[in-house]
Design a binder for these strands. Sequence first.
DNA 1: TGGTGTTTAGG
DNA 2: CTAAACACC
Length: 481
Amino acid sequence: MRTLVWYRGKDLRIADHAPLRDAAAGGEVIALFVLDPYFFAPERARELPHRMQVLLDSLRALEANLAQRGSRLWVIAGKSTEVVPRLAARWKVDRVVAHRWVEPFGRERDRRVREALRVRFELYEGETLVPPGTLRTGAGKPYSVFTAFARAFAATASELGKPLAAPKVLPPPPEGISAKTVAIPTCESLGIAPNGNLVQGGERAARARLKHFLEGPAREYDVGRDQLDRAGTSRLSADIKFGTLSIRTVWTEVQRALGRSKAAKSFLNELVWREFAYSTLWDRPELLTKPFRPEFEGFPWGCDEALWSAWVSGTTGYPVVDASARQLLGEGFVHNRARMISASFLTKDLLIDYRRGEAHYMKYLADGDWANNNAGWQWCAGCGCDAQPYFRVFNPVSQGEKFDPNGDYVRRWVPELARMPAKFIHRPWEAPDAVLRAAGVRLDRDYPRPVVQHAGARNRFLALAQEHLAATKRATRDDRG
DNA sequence: TGGTGTTTAGG
DNA sequence: CTAAACACC
């Protein structure tokens, strides 16, 4: 039996990779990655610099890992809907295997490839802990409340099974097959300046991060995860995104290391949120462009370009918001608490459509994941599935003081405020002149005053939202009646 | 996994 | 006077 193992960018590993394991157990293995020239063109790559860098790292690591075990990664340029069927026929494979890609783009691609293939196409579960679409309410409908979903999930989570070990050896590439391959691009060849602040891609680096997390931050995750000024989170998001760690590996390793502790529960709960996001998007692919809650359609978002560019560049005058924006650009990563603060500020204080923020995050996040990112933004904007209520508006000052009490997070990303004392670092505009002078900060010149006044912006949002939501509710009621 | 203005218990 | 409790957005 000859199997084509089709790698597609969200399962870039050899450990706990059931398609690869089964292919090797069944005979000949051809591992393939299709490099679409459209996505890997310099002008496209520059639009996604961080994710591209981590992806290329991970691809090269995969190539090396396969080679080291006697196999080979075939990297072929073209459209996968054309390349996979063509090579499957030319190489006379008996079947094509891959991990199911749950998000809409991958689903559509798989549908088209399946249509064009003349051989079996087997999709394996594994992108999520529980296959999307399997958890249903008593009425047989998708869950719309997280806690209910989580309860149903807990009832099945014991059946996850152990992650598969990485194969020590793999069958050599079959003889007599050939194709025009291409080299895996580098940042340089795509015209991206490599960024040393990004996480290192590839399975080995991912394992090291997992180990580090388990030995340190994971043990007090429940108390450390919200703190902006310390490394209390896992930093595994890009590894999970690219599949350099299988989600099952993360789940079982955390459980193994921490058992049923509060810390473990708190972290695993975050993974359940990810399950919820994937599951919800599976049932409602249109969520990538539309709010989950219909009453938010047509919401009167504003379009102040000056406010938008202040938010993007990290010059809103609210230090914790600005630190968050700059962390995104600098590191391709943002602390989860900072993501929430930023999203709340963009949508509620600046009244800008959450979809603009979502797209900006997808552009610069190394861990950018359609399901998670969309769910997170919709949650913050108040329009998502089991989202926070619209009237919950974060106060950027009190959030800063609560979760970055010494201001170290701000100091790291907003260096012009580095010498501000903790007492005023989250509200420099209130600092006495002497304090500002001592810190070397001239308002408006070194650091801006707030682009909006939070109290006023909050009231404006609440009034607008209240009016819009009431109006749409009236409209749907009239519609029905 | 909030914030704010107001009321109330307690010093 | 402060802080907890509460109602409302």
